[in-house]
Design a protein around this nucleic acid. Structure first.
Lengths: 147, 147
DNA sequence: GTACGTGCAAAATGTTTGCATCATT
DNA sequence: AATGATGCAAACATTTTGCACGTAC
């Protein structure tokens, strides 16, 4: 787990991030959450424990975390507020009609992502003159009617 | 092609969309573009031909187009302005570090998307109690250094 | 002690809305 | 003629920034 104050400290240090009370709280909340929270949700979630936190700092912190690879912005087409994820492992997302984002369990993510064939990707690189960094899969789904 | 005024008229009518000069211009510009333009870019692009167009109308029109399936919002993690695509066929996107979005050519899109294995997807549906609408693949890439 | 992070408030950016007017059906 | 779209401007929401102060290193 990455939730303890000490491991966060170590983690930050390893990325050259200064460790402040606020950053620690934001990262802990983000890492503990499964719901890909927005900056605002993180502020409220943390607010109870530590009222000494401003929205601007949440944004600044999230920027810093994304910058150094400790978090990711979750892609969205909603135009609404940006969502964040502290799980930077290679996994797929399920997107619900209301914009909620759920992680695909690790075993299924692996199966889905490794199914993406390599040949068309290298052909793509050749044609477009690019180098692939990462392939991201989003599954648009809706609640299935209960039987 | 869907670029002629007459085919746009027919297309709109088939979706129950009232056809105005402004909507026609926005849709024609969007359909002609390969660059997944923003509302603002569409306004400038069309502005030359037809100054009688406001940004609010571009947004309203894009809403209407997305609503009725004639366009799509392109997912992004940039927080910048929303990008749109009149190509609603099932295709993958290449996302460059600067946020630019390029279509994956149709043959490669097909190869990539059909490579996504069905079994993990149905397992996912079972576990999460959802129904899959669509699978979307985004390829993060960067310009490859010229040899 | 210095460099950098923080809070606050204001600005910048992107998108939506209210309303009088105008165009499509 | 009636319904719905437009333009404009103002409201709204999200994110960024400037600056005085505070804190980690």
């Amino acid at each position: 787990m990455h939730g303890s104050a000490e491991s966060i400290r170590v983690l930050f240090r390893s990325r050259g991030l200064r460790c402040t009370r606020q950053r620690e709280a934001v990262y802990a909340a983000l890492a503990a959450s499964r719901s890909h929270p927005t900056a605002d949700e993180l502020l409220s979630g943390v607010g109870g424990d530590d009222p000494e936190l401003s929205l601007a700092t949440v944004y600044n912190t999230l920027d810093a975390l994304c910058e150094c690879g400790l978090a990711r912005r979750v892609p969205s087409e909603s135009g609404g507020p940006c969502r964040f994820d502290a799980d930077t492992s290679h996994h797929a997302h399920v997107v619900m009609p209301d914009g909620a984002v759920v992680d695909v369990p690790e075993d299924l993510s692996r199966a889905i992502l490794s199914g993406v064939p390599a040949d068309p990707l290298s052909e793509l690189c050749r044609r477009l003159g690019v180098k692939v960094d990462r392939v991201s899969v989003r599954i648009h789904a809706r609640p299935s009617p209960s039987p």
